[in-house]
Simulated assay, not measured.
Amino acid sequence: MPFTPFHMGAGLAAKALAGRHFSVLTFGIAQLAMDIEPLVGMLRDAPVLHGPTHTYLGAVPIACVTAALAPWLCRPLLRRWNQEVRHYRMPWLQESERWSPQVVLASALAGTFSHVLLDSVMHLDIRPWAPWSDTNGLYATISLSALHLLCMAGMAGGALGWVALQWLRSRRAAQRQRHNP
Rank of each mutant, 00 (worst) to 15 (best):
L78R: 07
W167F: 09
P5C: 04
V121E: 01
L165E: 10
G154P: 14
P76Q: 02
S114Q: 10
E37L: 08
A59R: 03
A63M: 05
R44H: 09
D45H: 13
S120Y: 09
C64R: 01
L49R: 02
G9F: 06
M152V: 15
W81S: 00
M152Q: 13
P2K: 07
T141E: 05
L160V: 12
L12N: 09
L32I: 11
L49F: 05
P101V: 12
I126Y: 11
Q83H: 04
G11D: 09
M155Q: 14
S145I: 14
V121N: 04
S107K: 07
G51N: 09
H54G: 01
W99S: 11
A140L: 05
F3K: 08
A146F: 13
G9S: 09
G58D: 06
G111V: 15
V103F: 06
R98I: 09
A30L: 09
A106G: 11
F6Y: 13
W92E: 08
W167H: 15
R79S: 02
W162M: 12
L149E: 07
A110L: 14
W167L: 08
R86G: 00
M1G: 14
S100Q: 11
S23W: 12
L117E: 01
A110T: 15
W92L: 00
K15V: 05
P181G: 08
F6E: 11
Q175T: 14
A63P: 05
G157L: 11
D125Q: 12
D125L: 06
T26H: 01
G158L: 04
L93I: 01
L144R: 14
V60S: 02
H179D: 12
G157T: 12
P91A: 02
Q31R: 01
P101T: 15
A174V: 07
R169K: 15
Y139E: 01
L118D: 01
P131G: 02
S23H: 05
G161R: 08
A140Q: 08
L117H: 11
L144I: 13
L138W: 12
H123N: 01
I126K: 09
W129F: 15
G58N: 02
W92N: 00
I142K: 12
P128K: 02
D134W: 10
A33V: 04
